[in-house]
């Protein structure tokens, strides 16, 4: 890989990580902790929304996040031709 390509690959990598971390922070620390009282005013079924995020929602989002990351990274590896197969 050329140095420019390597730098571009790394930049794309970091951008993806940053986006994932933003989602990660928002759904756990944001919705589950910092905004929990405000969100608890909203009810979904028998759940207060903030409580639901803290005990259920954040975990579901974490799973999606890892699969999303895997999908985007594999795509990136293909694009920069550093995939293994």
């Amino acid at each position: 890989m050329s140095p420019e390509n390597r730098a571009a690959y790394w930049r794309a990598n970091l951008r993806l990580l940053l986006a994932c971390m933003l989602v990660w922070f928002t759904c756990s620390y944001g919705f589950g902790i910092l905004l929990v009282d405000q969100l608890n005013a909203i009810r979904i079924g028998g759940f207060r929304l903030g409580f639901w995020f803290a005990q259920q929602g954040s975990i579901y989002i974490f799973i999606l996040l890892i699969f999303f990351y895997a999908w985007r990274m594999n795509h990136l590896d293909q694009k920069f031709d550093v995939h293994e197969d």
Partner: peptide, 28 residues
């Protein structure tokens, strides 16, 4: 969680959220 209620969420979010860090920043 049974005895702490909402406060017990720290284990749920903390342990699974930490796993996300491991999977994104370390393992690959």
């Amino acid at each position: 969680i049974a005895f702490q209620g909402y406060d017990g969420s720290v284990y749920l979010m903390g342990w699974t959220g930490g796993y996300v860090l491991l999977a994104l920043f370390l393992a690959p």
